[in-house]
Amino acid sequence: MPISAAEALLEVRGLRAGHGKIAVLHGVDLTIHAGEVVSLLGPNGAGKTTLLAAISGLLPWGGGGVRFAGQDMAGAGPRESARRGLVHVVEGHRVFTQISVADNLELAGYDLPRRERAGRIEEALAFFPEIAAKRHERGGALSGGQQQMLAVAQGLVRRPRLLMLDEPSAGLSPVLVDRVLGVVAQLRAAGTAVLLVEQLIEKALAVSDRVYALAQGRIVLEARADEADLPHRLERAYFGQDVPTPLHA
């Protein structure tokens, strides 16, 4: 599918970012269109989590830029990004363990009018009947898989135009992995774009329209998810055989 900047929901151009003096991203370009699921794949340490954090405003940029829905995101932190419809669910099912499931979701929509917030909470819970049945239980009483569902539901309360999920399958049983990734397919059907960071390549490709591979802080492959021989091409990209040689050391 040709990439048209005019139609792009998210445009990342030449993005550089890192942690302190440690540079991680070295000029990343990435585009996502409305209603599209894009997987971001790569080996551990490639910079995938750093890229999501930079897009959502959790990390400052060292160069380049991000545009979302036609707006420059320079200076927008995570709260402002979420208000614009760009929602980041971080790795590791970060939920408040001492308060109820319902209160976790209330906090996710804290700045919404009460009636609208209540409606959005019910929308989010409809994706996860397992936690809807436990809405009055503490977050800490949920299993790891249920906590991951709650973390995704928190993001859905924001009714995002783009939902960024950082390894939502981490630590989950195969059945729960399928449940969480099944929600990604439902979101796509409803018109929500998803940027998915995932280690389970086959499962990620099954719910994706396109894929980017990141290695050593650079995009080394972009392809449609249904292209022939894609797993082999990803392996080559991961191990550096297709990585462009930098012009400067």
Rank of each mutant, 00 (worst) to 15 (best):
E116C: 09
A76Y: 02
A6M: 04
R233Y: 00
V243P: 00
L150M: 02
S169K: 12
E227P: 05
G65D: 11
S169Q: 12
L142P: 06
K48D: 11
D29W: 03
E167I: 02
L156M: 12
V12F: 09
A215R: 04
L41A: 07
L107A: 01
A249Q: 07
L221N: 02
A69D: 15
R94Y: 00
M149N: 04
S4W: 02
D178A: 15
L187Q: 15
R114Q: 12
R83Y: 13
K48L: 13
L156F: 07
R94F: 01
I55E: 13
V184M: 09
Q98Y: 06
P231Q: 02
R218N: 02
V28T: 06
R114S: 13
A185T: 11
V194I: 12
A53C: 10
D229N: 14
H136V: 05
G64A: 05
E227A: 14
V207I: 14
R161L: 11
D209A: 03
L200Y: 12
Q147L: 05
Y212W: 12
K21V: 11
L86R: 01
G119S: 03
Q98V: 01
Y110F: 12
D29Q: 08
G75S: 08
A54W: 10
L247R: 05
D226K: 15
R115D: 12
E80R: 14
F127E: 13
P129R: 14
A190W: 08
H136M: 04
V152Q: 02
M73L: 15
G35V: 06
R115T: 09
A193T: 08
L25A: 13
G144V: 08
V177Y: 08
A215H: 05
L15H: 08
G18S: 11
G77I: 03
R120Y: 00
S173Q: 12
R158C: 03
E80W: 02
D178C: 01
R79T: 11
G109E: 04
I121D: 04
R13H: 07
P246Y: 01
L205K: 05
R94I: 02
L59E: 12
L196V: 08
R120D: 00
D209Q: 07
R117E: 08
K203R: 15
A223P: 02
A204W: 01
G109Y: 05
E7Q: 14
D178I: 01
M149Q: 08
T49A: 13
Q147A: 07
R236S: 10
A69G: 15
D166G: 06
L247T: 04
G18N: 11
P2L: 11
V24H: 08
A124Q: 11
L230E: 09
Q147I: 04
A74L: 13
E137Q: 13
V207E: 04
F128R: 06
F68N: 10
P2M: 10
P231F: 07
A46R: 04
L165D: 00
Y238S: 10
E130N: 12
S208Y: 06
Q154D: 03
D229E: 14
P244V: 00
V157L: 09
E235D: 14
A118W: 01
L195G: 11
P43A: 14
F127W: 15
V87C: 13
A46V: 06
D229C: 07
A53V: 01
L30C: 03
A151P: 04
D242T: 15
S143F: 09
V220N: 02
K21I: 10
S173I: 10
S173P: 13
